[in-house]
Amino acid sequence: MALSSSQLRRELSARGLALEREYETTYGRDDLHTPSVLFQEDELGQHGNFHPSSYRRILANPAWAARLAKAYTASSRVAYARTRQRKELDCANSSDALLMNIVCYPGLLSRPQVCALLGIAPGLTPEFGVRMEAPQHGTRSDRSEVDLVLGHLLIEAKLTETGFQTARPTLVERYRDLEEVFFLEDLPRNARGDYHHYQLLRGALAAQHTGKTYLVLCDARRSDLREAWFQIIRCVRTAELRSRLALLTWQELAATVPKGLAAFLERKYGIVGGR
């Protein structure tokens, strides 16, 4: 069943509230904004937003644990906001948390089914929050990040985000290889001339420059995100680059994971393998 970003947020919030974990909620700004559920670590050292096995591995790896420190931007909409610092990965809607729950699960990246699906060698070490490499005109450098680098894969994770961002022409047209990579006249734009799906444009440009594959991971229920991906890929000039732009759903990935993790994904996110 296709869901909008707000509908999926409502589902994830309801699932979060049903879990017997320590949590708090944000205030919805109006009837259209569903309060988000924020989890925290309990007295046993477990965190409601993470599978226990994944969380232990994250904490044991300083580079991964640093990802947990990302600030939550809506902290002002939490009661007693000054009592503690809320983090982005505390939120039930966090695509980064979902990604780490899966990728950091013990033995997952040595599992033959997972490696075959992703086209990677067994035993790779994930790198989270890696700087993109897409040349710009002049001496400017691209400071944007990709969520995960895994071997030859540049992975962008999406869950309840409203889309892939819109950007004004000056931001998009600063990239050196824009005309080489895309049929510019076909790129989707709004009435003001702003470019739609800015993150996908950056990802394709980074794939062109690095020779890597840019992979978008999204929920099968978000048909709008899949359509955005197709809108961009059909504007890519070469078949060779199109072959290195990929789309995978959480549901497809969930079909390859161990049973314990699969049960967690179904209970917490409604993600069922193969659906």
Rank of each mutant, 00 (worst) to 15 (best):
A191V: 11
G260T: 13
P126V: 02
A116V: 11
L17N: 13
P112S: 09
E24D: 09
L178M: 03
I102S: 02
N190F: 05
L159Y: 00
R140K: 15
A69W: 04
R237E: 10
V103R: 01
F128K: 00
L205N: 02
D30P: 03
L59E: 04
Q85I: 12
V181H: 01
L261I: 10
Q40I: 02
P106Q: 06
A65S: 15
V236I: 15
R234F: 05
L118N: 07
W64G: 04
T139L: 13
E11Q: 13
S13T: 14
V37D: 02
T162Y: 13
T170H: 13
T249I: 03
V149S: 14
A63H: 06
E185I: 06
L261P: 07
R143I: 05
Q136P: 02
D42L: 13
F264R: 01
S144C: 13
L59V: 04
L245S: 07
R111K: 07
H196N: 09
E88T: 08
C218D: 06
Y214A: 08
P122Q: 15
L99M: 14
A74N: 10
E179K: 08
R234C: 11
Q46F: 12
Q199T: 14
L153Q: 08
E179Y: 03
A134F: 06
L241T: 02
A63V: 07
Q136S: 11
V181M: 01
L247H: 00
C115T: 10
L3Q: 15
L118I: 12
Q40H: 11
V257N: 02
S76T: 10
M132K: 10
K87H: 11
V130D: 05
A66C: 06
Y23T: 06
I232H: 00
R221M: 07
L12H: 07
R176S: 14
E240G: 03
D177L: 15
L108H: 00
M1D: 14
R234I: 10
G16I: 04
Y27R: 14
Y72V: 06
C104I: 04
R192N: 05
L245A: 04
L44M: 12
Q251W: 06
S54N: 07
I232A: 04
E11T: 05
L253H: 01
A191C: 05
Y195M: 10
E173R: 15
S141Y: 10
G28C: 05
R189C: 06
P126N: 09
Y27F: 15
D30W: 00
G151A: 08
Q7F: 03
S76H: 12
N93R: 12
L215P: 01
M100P: 00
S94V: 03
Y72M: 04
D42E: 08
L124I: 01
G151L: 06
L205H: 14
Y72N: 12
D90Y: 08
L19W: 00
G260I: 08
E11V: 08
P122K: 05
A263R: 11
R82E: 11
L8Y: 10
I102W: 02
D194W: 09
A262M: 03
T249F: 09
P62Y: 11
L98G: 03
C218K: 00
A60T: 12
A69N: 11
N101Q: 12
T34A: 09
A263M: 07
L187H: 09
R15N: 01
T25E: 14
G107V: 09
G119M: 06
L178C: 09
A167D: 09
S94L: 08
A2C: 05
M132Y: 11
W250D: 00
V149N: 08
